[in-house]
Computed example of a mutant assay.
Amino acid sequence: MRSPYNLIAAVLLMLFGTAAIAADNKITPMIESVEVTDDGETVTITRGHDRNATLPEIFQKTDRGCPPFCVQPMHPIPGVNTVGELEVLDYLHRIHQGDKSIMVVDSRTPDWVMRGTIPGSVNIPWNKINTDTAGTFETPAEADTFVHILADEFGANQDPQTGEWSFEEAKTLVLFCNGIWCPQSTANLKTLVEYGYPVHKLKWYRGGMQDWVSVGLTTVKP
């Protein structure tokens, strides 16, 4: 039986083709690069070719203090799939090809995003979605922002009379933040599930930006 990794590679190969540019640092043995759409423009994601490259300074720290920067579990919520770089690339390329049912969400605050993000992702800061420990928003404005995000960004529908949400047409969301020590996207996943978002439509890139840059994948700055 083929391993899941081989299956992913085979699917990606069919999606992206076998054309190779002269390079010595592919994403996988069969994948040279992946085209995605970022802010209306095509961006080609590759791996860097500088064998002496190091992590950006912001991702070199190992001690960050817990809480809040605690190591996140592999599966934060039952039913929510944890994904890696190849799956994220697959989702991004599907969006590039016109699939509007998917959104890759950078859950970090804008000050972090300005330092670099995954091409093709959409920044929706974690604190625009996250509720307090009681499961509520502090102000009506925060609640209104959350409703706007659910409806206009994620494609959910709210019954104006009952206030109940329908997620039948909602997008599949792939959430990430800074990495395995960052709780922001985990908090958002918990809030979305509490509001009824189907777990099969939620994916979590646990490695986040730290893993993305650690393997030399392309980033962009807004």
Rank of each mutant, 00 (worst) to 15 (best):
E142C: 08
L189P: 03
L202S: 13
S166C: 08
G163P: 00
E87Y: 14
V34I: 04
P68R: 02
C182S: 03
G207C: 04
A141Y: 09
G179V: 00
H96T: 07
T172P: 07
T136C: 10
V83S: 01
A151P: 00
L55F: 06
Q60C: 13
A22R: 11
L92Y: 13
L7N: 09
F69H: 08
R51P: 01
A143Q: 15
G135W: 06
S107Q: 07
G196P: 00
P76K: 09
K221A: 09
P140I: 12
N6G: 05
R64Y: 08
D144H: 12
N178Q: 11
S33G: 00
D90W: 10
P4Y: 08
G163W: 04
D111G: 05
L89M: 06
D39N: 12
Y5M: 11
W126P: 01
T145F: 06
E32I: 04
M1F: 13
N52R: 14
Q97M: 15
A10T: 07
P125V: 05
T62Q: 12
A53S: 12
D39Q: 07
N25Q: 07
N25P: 01
Y91H: 11
E57K: 07
P29V: 05
F69P: 02
A22K: 15
W126Q: 07
W112S: 10
A9W: 05
P78V: 13
G135C: 08
P76E: 06
A53D: 15
D99W: 12
P198N: 15
W204F: 15
T145P: 02
H49Q: 15
P73T: 14
D50W: 09
V193F: 14
W204G: 06
I21D: 14
T62A: 08
N81Q: 14
G135E: 09
V113I: 02
S33W: 00
D90N: 13
I124R: 03
N127M: 12
A19D: 12
V34F: 02
I102T: 14
N178R: 08
I58D: 11
N157E: 15
T82I: 12
I149L: 07
D63K: 13
P67G: 01
Q210V: 03
A187P: 05
D211P: 02
I45D: 02
Y205W: 06
G79I: 10
L92D: 10
E57M: 09
M1V: 11
V220P: 01
A23H: 10
L7G: 00
K190I: 12
